[in-house]
Amino acid sequence: MVNKTVASAADAVADIYDGATILIGGFGEAGSPIELIHALIDQGAKDLTVVSNNTGSGQVGLAALIANRQVRKMICSFPKSANSVVFPELYTRGEIELELVPQGTLAERIRCGGAGIPAFYTPTSVNTPLAEGKEIRHFNGNPYVMEYAIRGDFALVKSLKADRYGNLVYHKTARNFNPVMCTAATTTIVQAKHLVEVGSLDPETVITPGIFVQRVLEVTHPMEESVLVAENRRYPWNR
């Protein structure tokens, strides 16, 4: 029997180890798996490399993971947003590494990681500082930059619905990086708002086929990052 469901957020992230590379879905708060991130804070794995478009906001979710000094390096396209304080402070003090990647290159590096393609050439970032030190090759007379694929040891993903096979459906622009990240990690861990019966998702509308997913946790009432930030909440709650 195929059953990828897990009983708790703690179970879902229990084997994440020090030094792991973790892909974390989301664009700002949309699609960010905040309950799984908080479970990872409780779990305590350190020295992590995190791949995520942003660096979180306030003192919850990804920002709290960074504040808890579990992240050695961020790979992202846009590390500052309104209300992002934790990463900028640590970065300015030289206490966290940053690999800045153009957003489309980030998406494609992850896609290639999932597709078994080790590297690719892109026109993005040609003639800019982000191409410095990288191989340039010309095709049809135009320059392209070589970029390497990204794979994760783990991916933390948020979806709207999931079944026990790991088939996923997302919600509006909360889809963003989540589907490509599912494909590019050794262990993909999903928090879904609704765990549904096998057969109830229309196969024509499944966005992530279950083959890309290893664990599914139902989180019926996910917290909203912006609400927590507005209330000045901080994770762990008792700090």
């Binding site: 396209s77 846009f78 590390p79 500052k80 990463f87 900028p88 970065y91 300015t92 940053l98 800045l100 990647v101 153009p102 957003q103 489309g104 290159t105 993005t124 970032s125 800019t128 982000l130």
Partner: peptide
């Protein structure tokens, strides 16, 4: 400064 490129280069 914190550099932030987003999708602009693409």
């Amino acid at each position: 400064a914190i550099p932030a490129v987003g999708g602009a280069m693409d």
